[in-house]
Design a protein around this nucleic acid. Structure first.
Lengths: 248, 248
DNA sequence: CGACTTCTTGACTATTTTCAAGATGCGTGG
DNA sequence: CCACGCATCTTGAAAATAGTCAAGAAGTCG
């Protein structure tokens, strides 16, 4: 098992890449400096577990870079991913002592952690944090519900296309690719992780990716590097309405 | 189509049955009286639509009595329920102009509606509402994630057992039945609504209910009235860990 | 009591899973 | 630099689960 690594980072909130999107987005300068006093960074390697469900959790955190997954496991080993945590996403629940889900680093990961006690106190005294967290939680709830539609009603092919579209759109919104019809990105997940997210087996994931490739919806170099020649065609396969689930 | 019905209700917040659990739970007397100024009650009959996805929504609301459903529909008609709204649950999203989901009355329903504009203003000036709403939203997010596990990984039989367990537990917590091994309740949903909630067809729902009946896990009088002789046996069928997903 | 909706059950079909074998790619060490 | 070993991925064949189509039963409401 690899070890946790507490990092001394370029720790200026002012220079933080997720400053404007994370839970601290609405904070004023003085609030930020209070946050700086309770924060520390942690890095994890791809594959490392951040925390196990049920473990005591004495911090909350924002994802700074990389991708983490939230997942639940049944006694017999069946696993379902219940969230994909991207930069600026929030981890942990104020007021709860232990983790409700397994959190795993899907890629190399950096998190900005806040000691829980002072963070909770600050939530009471300053409204900006709680307001922003409410906004973010409502957004997550919408995502979770969109995912419920996928899990409950979409076919395997639609599930794969939907996941690819989400990842593609996210990369595009981070400015890593131009928002034309052609999109290129790397999958941050293994086939098994995709299966756990989509409620499928890894074999079905593999087959459907092959099928989408055969049909020219995507092309692959290696196993992770994906090219989508026509994003609209991908959305068509995903079965979403044309706006792709954008909520005003 | 039945019509909307605006009701003059026994409108005292002090006597409200959901006073201690709803979004107003933390409000002081003076805050309650501000809420009274912006509130009105509405009743709906079982089957009636409260609001359609995409419709403009100039209120937010709490469910006072009855059961409502939140659902999403794909272009080709596939439908997935994404939430079950019980007394004290909150409907609507502050800061959003239109409904993101279809809201339907599953049973006769009474809602306590707040005009959206003043409610949003009050959220900024008084922290109690936003704090409580954050708590409730985090709880809903947990429920949604529990449902994702069900939709993605459970078998049809486990899905049915899980739904029955949830309804049974809820009725018990409302004090309608004693919390012994034996539990009796009425299903608030049709087979089709159950199917939409569970990501199944109504035929599969029907078959699995018959199977649970044949195996003695439940018994039925009529189609809606259910007796669970041994609640632990039902939980076993649901595939949950023994605590039944209770979160501290 | 009768019409209509809701529900049940049967037979067949489709999709996804399971089990199994082999291919590909990646990192490490010779 | 190449080869080996391990993890990841692909593909095939058979099996299981849930879906579809269809008919009829039960319950409900007027």
């Amino acid at each position: 098992m690899p070890m946790l690594d507490t990092v001394s980072f370029a720790a200026e909130c002012g220079a933080c890449p997720i400053r404007h999107r994370a839970v601290c987005a609405r904070c004023e300068e003085d609030e930020l400096s209070r946050l700086e006093d309770m924060k520390y960074y942690r890095s994890y390697q791809a594959g490392q577990t951040v925390i196990w469900s049920g473990d005591r959790m004495d911090f909350v955190a924002s994802v700074v870079s990389g991708v983490a997954t939230l997942s639940q496991t049944m006694e017999d080993g069946r696993r379902q991913m219940v969230g994909l945590l991207l930069p600026s996403d929030f981890v942990g629940r104020p007021g709860r002592a232990s983790a409700a889900y397994d959190v795993t680093a899907a890629t190399d990961l950096v998190m900005c952690c806040f000691r829980k006690k002072p963070f909770e106190e600050m939530m009471i005294t300053t409204p900006h944090i709680g307001q922003r967290l409410l906004e973010m939680t409502l957004d997550e709830l919408d995502s979770a519900r969109e995912w419920m539609l996928l899990l409950g009603r979409k076919t395997a092919r639609e599930k794969i296309a939907s996941l690819l579209a989400i990842i593609a759109r996210r990369d595009a919104s981070l400015g890593l690719t131009r928002p034309s019809g052609r999109i290129v990105f790397d999958l941050p997940l293994t086939r098994e992780e995709m299966a756990d997210y989509l409620g499928l087996t890894l074999e079905t994931v593999s087959r459907q990716i092959s099928a989408l490739r055969k049909d020219g919806i995507i092309s692959l170099e290696g196993k992770r590097h994906v090219t989508v020649p026509d994003f609209d065609a991908l959305l068509e396969e995903a079965g979403d309405d044309s706006d792709g689930g954008m909520l005003s």
